[in-house]
Design a protein around this nucleic acid. Structure first.
Length: 241
DNA sequence: GCGACAG
DNA sequence: ATCTTGTCGC
């Protein structure tokens, strides 16, 4: 962890220390066994009213990009949103959703950072370690890392390395011409170039990879269903008079 | 010159 | 993340 990111007396210190321990186990070289046939997207949605969250994993065929299987898991929100400790909030429901999958993915693309994180332990990395599955961090917005915005080309495929703590921790990647870049980094058991290649391959027509889009749609629809059910439940008890 | 804080 | 209308472009 680069100094100056969190208070030494933070209540969350135990979690930062746990990240430092976990970081020792991260594999940042290509450790994908065999051919990548299935790639999953992961996402989580929240409901402030009920304090519930829904995590989803959607498995796509790596070549056709068609959905092969999808699983969700709903549970109570157990950890607050703290930049840098995001994984402690979202990994639990994703691990549960993963357990339900019949088709285990060869790779998971997360809607969050991997090593491009103050402690080198973003959600993608944490999830990868937890599941022992190769993961890629693919976030929509910047968290850490210095890069030269003026050197980032406007065309799809353009990249600029992001430096943090004197190391390249990821890249700003343009997945479509003239769109805001995505921030790609190693999660676990993949190298940066492999991560970039897969994100591009999974993003043929939109800014976000198809994996993330599918997972996003799923959690939103499930969340909407849940809210309607809750609403009907309230009506049912109010109505009889 | 300063600063950027995932979802 | 989530809350939300109109609006720009293919």
């Amino acid at each position: 962890m680069k100094e100056g990111y969190y208070e030494e007396d933070s209540d969350f210190m135990p979690y930062y220390l746990l990240q430092k321990e976990l970081k020792q186990k991260v594999i940042s070289y290509n450790d994908i066994k065999g051919e990548v046939r299935y790639i999953a997207g992961a996402d989580v949605a929240y409901n402030d009213a009920t304090k519930k969250m829904v995590g989803a994993l959607v498995v796509l065929d790596a070549n056709t990009l068609q959905v092969v299987e999808q699983q969700v898991h709903e549970m109570e929100v157990t950890f607050p949103y703290v930049p840098g400790l995001f994984s402690f909030r979202e990994v639990p429901p994703l691990v549960e959703a993963f357990k339900k999958l019949q088709t285990k993915p060869d790779l998971i693309i997360c809607d969050a950072h991997g090593m491009a994180h103050p402690n080198g332990m973003g959600m993608a990395t944490h999830l990868g370690l937890e599941l022992d599955i190769p993961t890629i961090g693919c976030a929509k917005s910047w968290l850490v890392g210095i890069y030269d915005k003026s050197l980032l080309g406007l065309e799809r495929g353009a990249t600029q390395p992001m430096m943090w703590d004197s190391k390249i921790v990821g890249v700003a990647l343009r997945t479509q011409d003239n769109v805001k870049p995505l921030f790609v980094s190693v999660g676990h058991r993949v190298d940066l170039q492999t991560a970039i290649d897969w994100v591009l391959k999974m993003s043929p027509s939109y800014r976000q990879p198809e994996t993330t889009r599918q997972a996003d749609h799923l959690v939103n629809s499930v969340m909407k269903e849940r809210m309607e059910i809750d609403f009907m439940g309230d009506e049912a008890v109010e109505e009889p008079i």
